[in-house]
Nucleic acid binder design. Structure first.
Ligand code: FES
Ligand code: FES
Lengths: 178, 178
DNA sequence: CTATTTCCTAGTAAGTCAATAGTAAAAGTA
DNA sequence: TACTTTTACTATTGACTTACTAGGAAATAG
């Protein structure tokens, strides 16, 4: 029997069917990357326009998919756009005033849900009485991180101190034992 | 005796189509509730068996769906079961040794994913160079909360102090500088 | 006018989620 | 043994979501 050499390709190695509690969607990921490109341009000239295709090739993202993402970000007031020749996109707010939570909410809706409902809306009978507080704490933790980091923080790699503390924890960069 | 199991998704106003970054699935929610029922029994007699239907009616959860959840929890070593008359389910570990992260991982897989991949596996070119650290921090925050709370903590409503601090925070829309 | 570029609607294939049906296997009771 | 109870497992369903793509309408510059 011939030995099969597994391709160790980080990019193509997708996780199994079920996604855990936290899932950063393609829209959120691509949107953040597009915005970081716009931040780079903003720091040279806050009014400079960048074309969608330029962003797409810089970040290697499908261009038509990215257009829709940028449109959603414009509808949320995070980016501005201009049509026609010499058109494009630019940031419409200062990079220090746009948090990751703003981006995720603009693209994927409310940060946290329990069975599709808001955590505070779910009722728990009997023995599970206090479970709601747990899910609310989960949402609070997510808010704490995502509302505490701005586009500028990511662009300059100057994350808030409590976030860098999180990253310094043992095992933060490794997956948990399987 | 034939007791009618109540319909599950009662009148709850479901959120809009897209779920945010954090989604507690029905499996994770139902699973936690079932385990909290088992904790209550465990505190009386650690070997007492509870039937699936009893858990289902106590928590108003579809019984066949719950059976599959309990089976997954057994395969993960959290729950033990016995078949036949007088059979049922019980906790197989001390409630203080089972964290919420254990439960979520058993039912929904790895805690966090970025476009279906592990956070440490995604590569970011150019301006988005430091985005990976953000997603890893998100996962670390989620681990911090979910690995820090045990079933016993929830059952007795004695959450860790940093979690209660999280719950007490004004939170929301406030930027912090590093 | 023409070329460019964003805006918008409407798809689609693949997959996931929540839940159900039906049957096999084990364990107790008589 | 036969019978009942209860979990174990497989397969399937319908609704919905995700990650895109197609094609054209509308705006803008030269
Ligand atoms: S929002 Fe949690 S500590 Fe500030
Ligand atoms: S896991 Fe985050 S501080 Fe301990």
């Amino acid at each position: 029997m011939s030995r099969v050499v597994q391709p160790v390709n980080a990019v193509n190695e997708r996780m199994t069917g079920n996604n855990g509690a936290v899932h950063i969607s393609a829209k959120a990921d691509y949107g953040m990357r597009a915005l970081l490109e716009l931040v780079a341009a903003y720091r040279i000239d806050p009014l400079q326009l960048i074309k969608g295709e330029a962003i797409a090739t810089a970040q290697q993202v499908p261009v038509k998919f990215l257009e829709g993402i940028l449109r959603q970000l414009r509808q949320s007031g995070i980016v501005a756009s201009q049509r026609g020749a010499e058109g494009g996109y630019r940031l419409d707010r200062d990079p220090s005033d746009v948090t990751i939570a703003d981006v995720v909410r603009a693209l994927d809706g409310p940060l946290a849900a329990v069975r599709g409902n808001r955590p505070e809306d779910v009722e728990y009978p009997g023995a599970s009485e206090h479970l709601r507080e747990v899910w609310i704490a989960v949402r609070a933790a997510m808010r704490h991180v995502l509302e505490g980091i701005s586009l500028e923080d990511v662009a300059l790699n100057k994350l808030p101190s409590d976030v860098t503390e999180l990253l310094a924890e043992p095992g933060a960069w490794q997956r948990r034992k399987p």
